[in-house]
Design a protein around this nucleic acid. Structure first.
Length: 589
RNA sequence: GGUGCGGUAGUUCAGCUUGGUUAGAAUACGUGCCUGUCACGCACGGGGUCGCGGGUUCGAGUCCCGUCCGCACCGCCA
């Protein structure tokens, strides 16, 4: 037996017991003939004490210890003379009788503490050491708890967890696929799934009317703090359901996560917003509604006053920044530079300051009378002490830019508190997006998404304008401005599915080659169905209050998709190469 | 594919604007002292390919060019 207790469980009630602990040496504090050791394991830290008065040889053993040594310690639980309220075991310590080194350790390259001195790079290289630290341990515990709660909730409402394959067929529409060469089928490749989309729909055809899976998905695209090449989805699908059934079911799942993981109750239904409204009022398809500061279209009010910049603009939008009328010239100049950055893309920033005394000062005083500016302020609900920002130009671009500015002002005013949660359903996305470059439509969600029933007429029209107006029966789950889930009612009629491929410009042969299996399956009794997938890593990071999902993945990839610990990806040896490629692809004589 | 910031002891950083003696600090590490520490304290010590390559210069950590790596973002992510 290596240990009788963990390093997190002994309390004052255990005083007098002889116990054996095992763990890692966090720190040794040597005080001459009285020495302390903090012993750490997954469960906590327990202080060991070596007192020469009571045990003559004990300090000789302690002398040999270094940071991160793995030791076994036998001793007696004793009440501390001076307690430490910072740790759960802080009322007791173990008076050492014996210390055994189970394994020595090299000095770690960074300190294994909550506030480590190590940078991201070195910690990624030694991920197994970084994972010993509390913040990462807490993150993985949160993830485990969430996964457990998901399985619990969904199982209780009749969902079956079914695994689907990782080696599948490449369907190069949307994100790039990771591909895997097949040794037994020289020259052919598997693809790793971007999502189990088609499989879950086939499971519906097969009659497994409530399916879920916590499943790894793969996308060979550039990374971000919240995007990894392999990531995890909570993938779900249901049969004989309409949109309401799906939203209710997964709103229930989200609420149970909030309640059982974070202890937060959401008695009301989550708010809903159309895609059109999201773009109009927040300049984003994933609005952060933790704060208001909605965008206003003031194009009509501002035009016709001989201000050529505004008169030439397709769109003029404004946000009211509460209580910021005191902004200095320097602050305004800095924000003007900020919106001009390519990432935001505005040409300039117009402001109107509404003094608390009713005075009005703006960067467009030359073109507008105070009365005209006051009328605009009244219309958008700005009052004394507020600051109005106005952007103008191309509608789509400026809505995006104003939305970005809105988020930035939210940040600067501290309105985006990570301990506050504002869930939201965004619905009624356009079904199709026209791409000028390739001169064809792309599915905004994916090609299995059903058009809304009332738009079916337009869906079969051959006019581009009609098709552009078709809405999808799709919905996103948005939390604090992050898209954490998305789904749709699917097409279950093979005629409509064929029409979809036609609209997307696939020839019959093309569609058959790529998706023949599903078109075929739909001919054998596909039930009406739909579903949703949550981005599990993002869900965890939001719950944990972090921006990056890396902390919630035990062994993540870096910015360039590399695993710096393994040094992967890497070359393979010639024998492997020959078996996979060269024999078949190189000309054989 | 693009933009920005960064790369200097094991680690985190300062030094670079204005080139010039032996490149500093903190922490970690080592040695010694220390009986109530818990970020223990005190003293002493060891520790550097200034990412890499090239250029300018009498002289480059510092200036210029290229390149590699890291982070954030844009494009991309059906």
């Amino acid at each position: 037996m290596y240990r009788s207790h963990t390093c997190g469980e002994l309390r004052i009630a255990d005083a007098g017991k002889e116990v054996t602990l095992a763990g890692w040496v966090q720190r040794v504090r040597k005080m001459g003939s009285l020495n302390f050791i903090d012993l750490r394991d997954r469960y906590g830290i327990t202080q060991l004490v070596a007192n020469e008065d009571e045990n003559k040889e004990i300090n000789a053993m302690v002398e040999k210890l270094g940071r991160e040594f793995v030791i076994q310690a036998r001793g007696v639980v004793t009440e501390r003379q001076s307690k430490n309220s910072k740790i759960a075991t802080g009322d007791i310590e173990i008076k050492l009788l014996e210390v055994k080194i189970l394994n020595a350790a090299a000095t770690p390259p960074f300190t294994i503490e909550d506030n480590t001195d190590g940078g991201e790079d070195i910690r990624a290289q030694y991920r197994y050491l970084d994972l010993r630290r509390n913040p990462l341990k807490k993150a993985l515990e949160l993830r485990h708890k969430m996964a457990h709660e998901v399985r619990n909730y969904l199982s209780n409402v009749g969902f079956m967890e079914i695994e689907t394959p990782y080696l599948i067929k490449s369907t190069p529409e949307g994100a790039r696929d990771f591909v895997v060469p097949s040794r037994m089928n020289p020259g052919d490749f598997y693809a790793l799934p971007q999502s189990p989309q088609t499989f879950k729909q086939l499971l519906m055809v097969a009659g497994y009317d409530r399916y879920f899976q916590i499943v790894r998905c793969f996308r060979d695209e550039d990374l971000r703090a919240d995007r990894q090449p392999e990531f995890t989805q909570i993938d779900c699908e249901m049969s004989f359901v309409e949109r309401e059934d799906i939203l209710n079911t997964f709103e229930g799942l989200a609420k149970s996560l909030f309640k059982n993981v974070l202890g937060k109750e959401f008695p009301e239904a989550f708010p809903r917003m159309s895609y059109a409204d999201a773009m109009e009022y927040y300049g984003s398809d994933k609005p952060d509604i933790r704060f208001n500061m909605k965008m206003n279209n003031i194009t009509a009010q501002m035009q016709g006053k001989n201000f050529s910049v505004f008169d030439a603009a397709e769109y003029i939008g404004a946000i009211v920044v509460p209580g910021c009328a005191e902004y200095t010239r320097k602050q305004l100049d800095e924000l003007t530079e900020w919106v001009k950055r390519p990432q935001v893309g505005a040409k300039g920033l117009v402001y109107i300051k509404l003094g608390p005394d009713g005075s009005i000062k703006s960067s467009i005083d030359k073109f507008y009378t105070p009365q005209e500016l006051k009328a605009v302020a009244d219309k958008i609900g700005a009052t004394g002490g507020d600051l109005i920002f106005i952007l103008s130009g191309d509608k789509k671009k400026m809505q995006g830019a104003l939305g970005t500015l809105r988020l930035e002002m939210g940040n600067r005013l501290g309105l985006r508190d990570n301990s506050v949660f504002a869930p939201l359903w965004v619905c009624d996305f356009p079904l199709l997006e026209w791409d000028d470059e390739t001169q064809r439509f792309y599915a905004m969600h994916h090609p299995f998404t059903a058009p809304k029933p009332e738009d079916m007429g337009k869906f079969f029209s051959n006019k581009k304008e009609d098709l552009e107006q078709v809405n999808a029966n799709a919905y996103d789950f948005v939390l604090n401005g992050t898209e954490v889930g998305g789904g749709s009612i699917r097409i279950h009629d093979s005629k409509i599915q064929e029409r979809m491929f036609e609209v997307l410009g696939f020839s019959k042969e093309d569609a058959d080659y790529r998706f023949g299996f599903i078109i075929n399956a739909f001919k054998y009794g596909a039930p009406p169905h739909g579903g949703l997938a949550f981005g599990f890593d993002r869900f965890c990071s939001l719950f944990g209050g972090q921006e990056t999902i890396r902390d919630y993945i035990a062994f993540p990839k870096n910015n360039n998709g590399r695993d710096v610990m393994l040094d992967a990806p890497s070359g393979i040896d010639q024998i492997q190469m020959d078996e996979l490629f060269l024999k078949s692809i190189a000309p054989v004589k």
